[in-house]
Nucleic acid binder design. Structure first.
Lengths: 211, 211
DNA sequence: ACATAAAGTAAGAGCACTCTAACATCGAGA
DNA sequence: TCTCGATGTTAGAGTGCTCTTACTTTATGT
């Protein structure tokens, strides 16, 4: 095996499958799901419009592969951000909001995809698996924040709202109804918003116990 | 069931413009922006595929009209929910989260549109105006919750996060990665999440002042 | 060396959609 | 009543996309 990163040296591409996913994600970032087409991805990857069908049975399979790749990237980034945030559980969970926001701002519309398609169904097991990885990671971080006696279902709700808050904030930012600022500033605001939600949640738990 | 729209009385439709918008919103709810087409909307409204072009210059104009109508509906619903919530400002703002969630769950994917297109630009003044109406209403409710000395910019941030949280929660629900429950229950959770964020935000303000 | 499979290409059938052009019908005012 | 503008209709040109078929090129194992 010689260098595996040879981009299109001759008739064969080298690693077209990975190239298509990469260009697919880039196209999604620019045009959203609505503007996605196998033909455009093929052009971007520098191959004929029939070539992708050697690697994916149809358009939906390529979309699913992109969705799975995005989910995997996000999960890795969130885990890394939590790791970098130090030992405090609240810091760790809140940090994921910053990483998520950063990713969404950098990859723009691609995010719609991972929730938008019916990829949650058993028809796309790869996406489903990556989705579970993401929620699993968040559940670990979330349960570390909450008192030990909080049920699994309540933890799931809590984590779900945390993800929702972050996702909503980041996606609305992308759509650009707000004055644009640098990514760092946006990410910091997302972390603050996440902290506010977490402390509000904990305070409510506390009030309930002392009542 | 030939008419969710006004039944045509003869050759002429009666109010095709409004019918197209209504069916456009319904189609968006079913297929999302990706599945939207003028032709399909025309079929749903019971007219030929050329008829819409008497009322809208092109596909984008019809989409914009749908977006504006959705925004107007949401704004009215949020205002009504706040009114019904009573006098307490926190109750009033939190109630908008429930109304928003309810609307999104009932209209499903249509929500993507109002943020997704570049309708924020000056090219679509109607959408822009409805968008301002929505944020204006939220700003009123938001500033009533916060202490009087909070700046306009900080209030805007606060309101933005409130909307983001709600939007994210509702849209993730629609995409259905969670076990489905009745709308009331989801709306109630959205209100709780909004309250958590609001109290967390207020607590942070308080801590800052007493520091 | 050579058969074979994997991975590309060119060409095109078939389809849905956008939008235009020319014509038909209806309602309303002179 | 009669005409005219608004609002429908049918027909179709043009575009772009998905996916198939048949062919070409390259990598690889024996």
């Amino acid at each position: 095996m010689s260098s595996p990163t040879t981009p299109r040296r001759g008739y064969h591409h080298g690693d077209l499958r990975a190239g298509l996913i990469r260009e697919g994600i880039a196209l999604l970032a620019e045009t959203g799901v609505a503007g996605f087409s196998v033909a455009k991805v093929a052009v971007r990857a520098g191959v004929s419009s029939a070539a992708p069908y050697r690697h994916f049975p149809d358009r939906e399979a390529l979309l699913a592969a992109c969705a799975a790749a995005i989910l995997a990237d996000i999960t890795d980034l969130l885990a890394a951000a939590a790791e970098q945030a130090g030992p405090d559980p609240l810091d760790r969970l809140a940090a994921t909001a910053g990483a998520y926001t950063r990713y969404v701002l950098e990859h723009r519309a691609g995010i719609d995809l991972i929730y938008s398609y019916e990829f949650s169904g058993p028809h796309h097991p790869t996406v489903q698996e990556q989705s579970r990885r993401l929620t699993g990671a968040l559940m670990d971080l979330g349960s570390a924040v909450l008192p030990a006696d909080v049920s699994w279902a309540d933890t799931a709700d809590f984590v779900y709202v945390h993800l929702s808050t972050t996702h909503g904030y980041a996606t609305l930012l992308v759509k650009g109804t707000r004055p644009p600022q640098d990514i760092d500033s946006h990410a910091a605001r997302a972390v603050t918003a996440a902290r506010d939600h977490i402390t509000g949640y904990l305070q409510r738990l506390n009030n309930r116990e002392t009542a």
